[in-house]
Every structure is written in structure tokens, then in C-alpha cells.
Amino acid sequence: MSGTTARGGTDRRYDVVVIGGGAAGLSGAVTLARARRSVLVLDAGQPRNAPAAHMHGYLGHDGLPPARLVSTGREEVARYGGEVVESAVAAAERLPGDEDFRVVCEDGTAVVARALLVATGLVDEVPGVPGVAERWGREVLHCPYCHGWEVRSRPVGVLSTGPLAVHQALMWRQWAEDVTLFGHTGPEPAEEEYEQLAARGIAVVDGEVTGLEVADDRLTGVRLSGGRVVPCGAVVVQPRSVARAEALAGLGLSVTAVTAGGASAGSCFATGPAGSTQVPRVRVAGNAADPKAQVIVAAAAGMQAAAALNADLIDDDVRRAVAARRA
């Protein structure tokens, strides 16, 4: 690692350490490096969209493999003098009696930063039906704007595990003509919802789903508890999306519950405008702050948070310069 030596120690010192090297983190790092800040990106290499072969909805990059966007982003960070290190973060805290932060990597090495950009993303917890986790991001999906076009000609099944299942089925009907709602463990639709489903030609199948049928590494159907198999080429689920917050507990950031349709849908960091938090000079961007953000939105949020962090540092630079002049 480059950078300067921290005051009173040997830890490398940076203006900003970016925790997370996905679209939000790398976008923020490029913005900060172009602002002539010393920047270090710590990337655990566990992106939320890793199971997906391609990303969509990113203007100019539609259909690009997510790994290629990361590779290009790393090159752009390096072009402006920033650094990217493949490492998870074990801990982070504000230094006692100081305004700086200390970030400890998984190998025990540590760095010091004046500011932090948290872009650690989320972990998606999918229903525990056999085969769902294995096909996640391939034929097991949740966002029609990400994958609806690709499965438009296939029969699509919606696995009900909560109150949003009917909404999901009606939404996915825009992309696919053959949609089936599997009651599974979710609540029974209300009379009005049954009418809406029938009006849109969406079948409702009662009974618990016990697994997915796969042939030649391709999803072919949904298996019910009674043994019946309903043909399906894609299955829609509602995951719980949980913030990666454990290693950052020492910062004192607030984590807030996320709900959908009145039910728990996971957690994320509580943020204000431009990813601000209750901790000065710590901002959060991407899915860690907005679970619904697609890649292009996460990248934009990373840039906004980085610009705000640079403004925070400019204010601090001015304050220090005035104090030094008066001294």
C-alpha cells in the first residue's frame, strides 16, 4: 500500500478509505481520486450480483458481465492514482481523541483515513426451498427490470412467502404471458386479489413447494409436496436483503429495518442526503443504503457520496489552514 505514514504510528494514511469495491465503491473512488484525494479501496470480492451472468439497465453497458464492470472500474481508479486491495475488513473505528478512522484488514494490517465511504452492499437471504439457492441469479430471480426481458418467453412461477407475492405476480405478468402463483407458505390472496389474478390470466396453485426440477443444468419445473411438477423456466422469490454491518459495528452506524408490504425484508444502514450518517465524514452508498438500487443507481450514489465527502474534507482543510495561520 502507498499513502503516508499515520501520525504516531506505522499504519498507512489516506484521505479516504472505501470499504467495498462494487459499482458504488469504485464510482466513489474514481470521483475522489480525480479530486486529488489519496484513496484506498478495500474489496472483499463478494458482490451481491456475482451469481448473475449479465447486468441490465446500465446505459451504455447493458448486458455487460458484472465482473467486467468491476475490472474496468479498478483500472479507472488506478489511472488516477487510487489503490485497490482485495481484502475484507475485520474492524473499523474512530481513533481515540482523534478525528481519524482506523480500518483493520482481514490479515491484521491496518490503515488510517480521514474519511470513510462504506459500500459493502447486502447479502440476499433466499427461501430455503431445495434448489433455490443453487439457481439464484440464474433462473431464480426477484427483479423484473434486471431479468424480465431474458425470461419473457418462459413460464414464470412466483413463490409466495409473504404479502408481496400477488404484487410480484401481477408485475411479472408484464414480461411473461404464462405466470403461476405458488401459494407455498405465503398468505392466501384476498378475494379482490383473486379477481385481479384471474383477470390477468395468472394461475394460483395451492400447496407447499418442496423443490425445483432441473435437467441439463436448466430449470424445468417446480415440485409440490404431493409430487406434482408444474413446468417453469424461471422462479421469482422475495429475498431478505441484509446489510453487511458486523465488521463496522465499531463505527456506531445506525442500521434500520427494511419492510415490504408490512413484512420484514431485511436491513440497511440509515442514511440521509448523499449517504450521510450520524458519524461525521462517514458516508454510505449503494445497496448498503438502498436495497432496491440497481447497478447504475448504486454507481450514481457512489459518485454523490464521494463528492459530499470531498466537500467535508475541504471544510476540514480550510479549518486546519485557518487554525495554522492564526497560530
Rank of each mutant, 00 (worst) to 15 (best):
G162H: 12
L42M: 11
L159H: 06
R218H: 08
D217I: 08
S264D: 14
A67Y: 01
G250Q: 07
G226M: 10
Y145W: 15
S87L: 02
G252A: 04
D317P: 01
T10Y: 04
G186S: 08
G226V: 14
V318K: 02
A133Y: 04
V118E: 03
P187H: 14
S241I: 01
S225M: 07
S241Q: 15
L141A: 06
A327T: 11
C146N: 13
E246K: 12
A324H: 08
A247H: 13
G73M: 06
A88Q: 03
E193T: 06
L197P: 04
K292N: 14
A215G: 10
F269T: 04
V236T: 09
V123C: 03
G286V: 15
G162C: 09
P127M: 05
G157A: 15
D62F: 08
T109H: 12
P144N: 13
A115P: 07
A305F: 10
R320Y: 01
A33P: 09
W172D: 06
V89R: 00
V112W: 00
T185M: 10
G252P: 04
Y80R: 10
A88N: 02
A29H: 07
E75N: 06
V255F: 09
A305Y: 11
A247K: 02
P65N: 10
R283G: 02
V297N: 09
P65A: 05
A289C: 11
V140G: 02
V166R: 10
V16R: 00
I314A: 11
V39W: 01
V297Q: 12
G28F: 10
D206P: 11
V118D: 02
T120Q: 01
A274C: 13
T180D: 10
T210L: 11
G201Q: 14
A323K: 11
S71A: 14
A35G: 13
G22A: 10
R138Q: 09
E76M: 00
D317I: 07
A301H: 12
W172V: 05
A78R: 14
A260V: 07
S153Y: 05
V156Y: 02
G252Q: 05
V279F: 01
G226F: 10
A245E: 11
G73C: 07
V209G: 05
F101D: 00
S2I: 15
P273H: 06
A67Q: 08
R152N: 13
E192K: 08
R74V: 13
G201K: 15
T277E: 03
V77W: 04
A113D: 02
L95D: 00
L253T: 00
E191W: 05
E192P: 01
A306L: 12
V77L: 04
R135E: 15
Y194V: 08
T256A: 12
L95I: 12
A274V: 10
A88D: 04
G261Q: 08
H61C: 03
S267Q: 03
N310H: 14
A176W: 03
G82R: 02
A260W: 06
V30G: 01
T10M: 10
R48A: 08
R13G: 00
A92M: 09
M171C: 08
D62G: 05
V209W: 12
D290S: 12
A67S: 10
D290W: 11
A234Y: 00
D178E: 15
S276P: 01
